[in-house]
């Protein structure tokens, strides 16, 4: 079983690396977005899967990353790295200041608090137009560049995003496997027992909240460079809901689930768009179908297929 699992992972990596050059350009573009959403959704997934927190405010950090990159690269003409770092610093600081007080809440109260955070931030993005460009936004964000190699096609950017996704997944994997991960799950499943084992739940949850914010910020900066603009229209409540859908769709506790969920959110609407005006209805129906028919998420269903075929192969 162990060997076959490594095989699947190796095979998936091979496909992710080798296939895109043969795909049409707009499809690679969708994969880039799937990658960016994976990074942001991973943060939400860690909170949901490891701490049981439904975060409806990821858009705040995604937007901070995007605006930091936009403002610094366009108005200050700073190098791209500065945008990434400043976005992450602001996000971490904000996550600490907001997270510490609100993470004492639980359940739907906490979900509402994160939602409220998203609504407040959205209103401020409109209001602080000296910083965000208000409703017009900021355009002309330069393409990312690695030495003199400009990432100006979807395919080139795809490989960067793929690398970032791989690193983030690896780090998340190690986190879950570590003592911290163990403490997190203990806390999620039985808070009292965890406290008796000297785990400080609020501090631990705040740390994961900050980590989630960092991931959101990185995703936002990547998005800003890829799209070349940052506009408040990209940072609405609907996007926050999408970021929450990603881990839920894929299966909250699994890391691969986040990737699968992000692919669903990025690719399925595009595939359905050939049905014209019906496509949004069909997207809703597709969501319903996944929930009703696949209780363990898309990855759970995939694992089931895998298990069955393995059983089938054994006489």
């Amino acid at each position: 079983m162990k060997a076959s699992r490594s095989l699947v992972i190796l095979l998936s990596i091979a496909v992710c690396v080798a296939l895109p050059p043969f795909l049409p350009r707009h499809f690679v573009d969708l994969l880039v977005f799937a990658g960016i959403y994976t990074v942001a959704g991973l943060g939400v997934g860690l909170l949901l899967g490891q701490c049981g927190i439904a975060n409806l405010g990821q858009i705040v950090f995604y937007a901070i990353g995007a605006y930091a990159t936009a403002y610094l690269t366009v108005y200050v003409q700073a190098p791209a790295m500065v945008g990434f770092v400043v976005g992450m610093l602001i996000s971490a600081a904000l996550a600490l200041t907001i997270g510490w007080p609100i993470l004492r809440l639980t359940g739907y109260f906490l979900a509402l608090a994160t939602l409220a955070m998203g609504i407040v931030a959205n209103a401020l993005f409109f209001e602080w137009d000296w910083l965000t460009g208000g409703t017009l936004g900021i355009g002309g964000i330069p393409k990312l560049q690695i030495f003199s190699f400009v990432l100006d096609t979807p395919l080139r950017f795809y490989y960067l995003v793929l690398g970032v996704v791989a690193i983030c997944l690896l780090l998340a994997h190690n986190l879950i496997r570590s003592r911290t991960g163990l403490a997190l799950r203990a806390m999620r499943d039985s808070q009292d027992a965890a406290i008796s084992l000297a785990v400080n739940p609020r501090a631990l949850r705040t740390r994961i909240f900050i980590l989630s914010a960092l991931l959101g910020s990185v995703a936002g900066s990547l998005f800003a460079h890829y799209g070349g603009f940052a506009n408040v229209q990209s940072f609405g409540i609907e996007k926050s809901i999408n970021f929450l859908l990603i881990p839920v769709l894929g299966g909250a506790t699994s890391l691969i689930g986040v990737v699968v969920g992000a692919l669903f959110i990025a690719v399925v609407p595009e595939l359905l768009s050939q049905f014209g005006g019906l496509h949004q209805i069909l997207f809703g129906v597709a969501l319903i179908g996944v929930v009703v028919l696949m209780p363990a998420g898309l990855t759970g269903a995939l694992a089931e297929v895998w298990r069955r075929s393995a059983e089938g192969a054994r006489p």
């Binding site: 949901l48 439904a54 809901i241 859908l245 839920v248 769709l249 909250a252 949004q280 209805i281 997207f283 809703g284 129906v285 597709a286 969501l287 319903i288 996944v290 929930v291 009703v292 209780p295």
Partner: peptide
């Protein structure tokens, strides 16, 4: 979580 997802899906549709 899946009930939230279900109702979001119905709402979108």
């Amino acid at each position: 979580d899946s009930y939230l997802l279900l109702t979001i899906g119905i709402g979108l549709s």
